[in-house]
Design a protein around this nucleic acid. Sequence first.
DNA 1: TTGTACGCGTTATCAG
DNA 2: CTGATAACGCGTACAA
Lengths: 333, 333
Amino acid sequence: MPKMKDVAALAGVSPATVSRVLNGVTNVDEALAERVRDAALRLDYRANGVARSLRLQRTDVWALIISDIENPFFTAVARGVEDIAQREGLSVVLCNTDGNPEKEARYLDVAEREQVSGVVMSPNRSGSDISRLMAASIPVVAVDRHLDEPVDTVVVDSARGAQDATRHLFEQGWERPACVTGPSATETAEQRLEGYRRAWTDAKRKPLTSLVRHTDYNAETSRSAVASLLRLAKPPDSFFVANSLMALGALEEFRERGIVPGRDVGLIAFDDAPWARFVDPPMSVVAQPAYDIGSRAGQLLLERVGARGGRRPAQTVVLETSLVIRASSKRHA
Amino acid sequence: MPKMKDVAALAGVSPATVSRVLNGVTNVDEALAERVRDAALRLDYRANGVARSLRLQRTDVWALIISDIENPFFTAVARGVEDIAQREGLSVVLCNTDGNPEKEARYLDVAEREQVSGVVMSPNRSGSDISRLMAASIPVVAVDRHLDEPVDTVVVDSARGAQDATRHLFEQGWERPACVTGPSATETAEQRLEGYRRAWTDAKRKPLTSLVRHTDYNAETSRSAVASLLRLAKPPDSFFVANSLMALGALEEFRERGIVPGRDVGLIAFDDAPWARFVDPPMSVVAQPAYDIGSRAGQLLLERVGARGGRRPAQTVVLETSLVIRASSKRHA
DNA sequence: TTGTACGCGTTATCAG
DNA sequence: CTGATAACGCGTACAA
């Protein structure tokens, strides 16, 4: 691999001049510059990013640490972050924690050691420790959930979305909507439950705790919860489910019992997964602006990297969800 | 941020000794070693990965360049690669090209500049150029499709999978299976078409070109293709679709026309997407061992990084698909 | 066994 | 405007 020295030799100039030409910072005599560019081209020279980073004490890389690469919500967030980064000529590397706190810690460690210039992360349930990142003054933006530390954060108004969804079920004429939400420890799960409860109150009814289940954010546990709800003496007639993977579990249980959403029961779930409109009947959802969450996070991170935004107090951006009514929540006569 | 010098000062030793202790390479007096570890702990010292990489001329990072982060097939591949890497203490960074050759070129560039120690990639349709990586002697493993250069490759026997799927349709009693496959330029699309054709020949019938469509690997274009097939004077009675996203398009078109898979038409698709068994009726698929593809690729890469495997000729690993019969392909009386 | 000194490849400072 | 030189933080050959 050719280095700057080689280019300099071929062009008959000093390495310093090569650096100046290639980075286009200072004015260099056009004749020399041309010679340098030509030499670089002929040698097919590429700057060594590692050496550059060491010298500059910074990297053109962001780390994006997400908890589940198989959740379409997070992949959409990733796209949003990526697009902002690309626009600035930055690379973003994706780290998948699988919701595993150890993996998360590992990647946080890597982010520090590799001196990334910024981190966007969706925190795990347990209190993620970003103190080292902060000590290294590497800016962090949280998405989906809050961190304990005061950092920029982008979330959606989950409670509001849940409330809208549940109200919609009531408006359709369903009378006993159940709520299958995430683990009690998670912020989003609690907010979605809270919104569900508010809708009951709005409907002048007292929320029934027997119709609420906490499960993991996956299909299997959700399915069990739905089954247990259906076994109730007075079962629910409709379901608000807190996530698209959980919705898959519900659908499976329904099918097995010959229950048809939009006819026998009502169903609405968080997240507009790609397949939501393709299942039969099409599933009503509370859509999160996942891409926007990512791009807003990217913008906030951008403001922090320069020396300028450093002193601005941390801010939280709250985006709105939107109700997408399809057939699964309708009540047919 | 504390550096090695600081740790050395606190422990009352030289930086060299700190390096030796922390990397556990040479024998160091246990008393000193203890002092060093203690000092490192108290300062919460982390080695600067950038400086380390510059000195060592290598990185503990792999780049995984995939063409579509929203395709469950590739996320599963990613998990496979990750697990192998983790086991070796390596980090893997994910780069999403969106099937965009420019993005791919960018990331290939980044991989070189940042001196990653290995690359796993799913090549784009157009000939991806990894010559620079090879010049820099950074090993590359291709997955899903071949590269022009002779590098280790992990693929599945697509033709065989397609043949199995189509034969299954015939065995169910369907007589005019259509084939909706990917862009003509792509290796996988051609192979799946080839397998489909072989099944016709096996059935002692001449494949009908009128029942074949090439579309992009997404839902929209696939839907149009299915629609056009259904408008035929003699339309197909069943469908073999080359990818899960395309299957979504087919499902949408069917629903709009009131056509029920597994009753009115037969349907089987490549890739066992997470939602495939949850749609109604559950969808029959040709499952690719995506996770295994990733982990095999990781293993091959591992063999290349040491000086040892360098001279072994490139090898191609071909994994088998498996037929998962659910309801969508059945023919009810 | 431990310390000193150099070099990895680049960019910024400072003379010229 | 250009060139020599130092420094980024670490690992290792060499000397002690």
